[in-house]
């Protein structure tokens, strides 16, 4: 039953991803001109001039002279074979450039998600059970401020504190000696040392909203009659809250993965630029600005796919957790 549901959902993703690919393609085509115009402009800055024949030649080589739909179909056809095309700017296959960065992006988002849950869950439960206590007010206040502070501002403030008070640059994911080194135990440990800052920066606003969601849901559930039933059975206060209302309030909490993960992936773009992390964000921004269309397209497409996968995971989890959600 559940497998049928999962298969069905995955099949549903196909038209979805198709639509995403169209949007991604249109987006990277939206700027006036193409990579060559940017390239020529760049060369023009250093007083180099390309003659028309070379330009036409290049345009033909990159396939930029063909109509849009042909370019799109070619792109998709190559995509299906796992070929993301060539980056104009880097003169390298796009797949060489994106995978490590996407991997780090995913890892960062996932670590942040775990952090978010680990922090938001107990605080949310505490806040609801001890409604209007001092702890609740503190949590609510921090939650509000976390919600109102843009990620990049938080990142800047933490970096400022790092530089001014500790004299260290806290940006990046790796220390200098590991930056270009191959993966090793030392590199992983180094990564973990650097990871906390982006995780905290990225996770704060999601944590804040999850605390609010958990608190509100649990408050709703705490006044439900089945809590009275459990109390009338003779269950201890702690267990009855954990087994019943918290269990029920967990469902909407878990299903937030559907938007928290995409938000994290999304938010990571800006944070990564500020903290100069070697994730997808900075490279994508650069590719967008220089109209390096295959590279930019690959990022937009892959990030969108992560979003869709996040929603898929949340739907499946919800079905597994909540017997009321019927699947057919």
């Amino acid at each position: 039953m559940i497998w049928r549901y999962i298969v069905k959902r995955i099949i549903w993703m196909v038209p979805f991803l198709f639509a995403v690919s169209v949007v991604a393609f249109l987006l990277i085509q939206a700027p006036p001109g193409d990579y060559l115009t940017t390239y020529i402009a760049k060369l023009g800055e250093s007083n180099e001039v390309l003659d028309q024949a070379t330009i036409d030649n290049l345009r033909r080589r990159f396939g930029l002279d063909q109509p849009l739909y042909v370019q799109y179909l070619k792109w998709v056809a190559n995509l299906l074979q796992g070929d993301f095309g060539m980056s104009f700017e880097w003169r390298q296959p796009v797949s060489d450039l994106v995978w490590e960065r996407m991997g780090l992006t995913f890892m960062l988002s996932f670590a942040t998600l775990l952090f978010t849950w680990a922090v938001a869950f107990p605080i949310g439960v505490y806040s609801a059970v001890k409604k209007y206590s001092i702890g609740d007010y503190v949590a609510t206040t921090i939650g509000f401020i976390g919600l109102a502070t843009p990620n990049f501002l938080l990142a800047l403030i933490l970096m400022y504190i790092g530089v001014v008070y500790f004299g260290t640059d806290v940006g990046g994911l790796f220390s200098n000696e590991y930056k270009n080194a191959p993966w090793s135990m030392g590199k992983v440990i180094d990564l973990l040392k650097h990871l906390w800052l982006p995780v905290v920066v990225l996770g704060t606003s999601a944590t804040a909203s999850l605390i609010r969601i958990m608190r509100a849901n649990l408050l709703d559930e705490l006044s439900k009659p089945y809590v009275d039933t459990a109390r009338a059975k003779g269950l201890s206060e702690f267990w009855l809250i954990m087994k019943y209302p918290v269990r029920v309030a967990l469902n909407p909490f878990i299903s937030t993965i559907g938007w928290v993960l995409p938000n994290l992936v999304s938010g990571a773009v800006i944070t990564a630029i500020v903290l100069s992390l070697p994730t997808a964000g900075p490279l994508m921004l650069q590719a967008l600005l220089s109209q390096d269309m295959f590279l930019a397209g690959a990022f937009v497409l892959l990030l969108s796919s992560l979003t869709v996968i996040g929603m898929l995971i949340s739907d499946i989890l919800l079905v597994l957790l909540d017997p009321r959600v019927k699947y057919e």
């Binding site: 009659p225 089945y226 009275d228 039933t229 059975k233 003779g234 019943y244 269990r247 957790l321 017997p323």
Partner: peptide, 20 residues
């Protein structure tokens, strides 16, 4: 509670946990 004195409620739907 539940051992010597049992109790039943008005709304049988919402008085039972929906996820157990």
């Amino acid at each position: 509670r539940g051992g010597r004195i049992g109790m039943i409620f008005q709304e049988p739907m919402s008085s039972l946990s929906p996820v157990h």
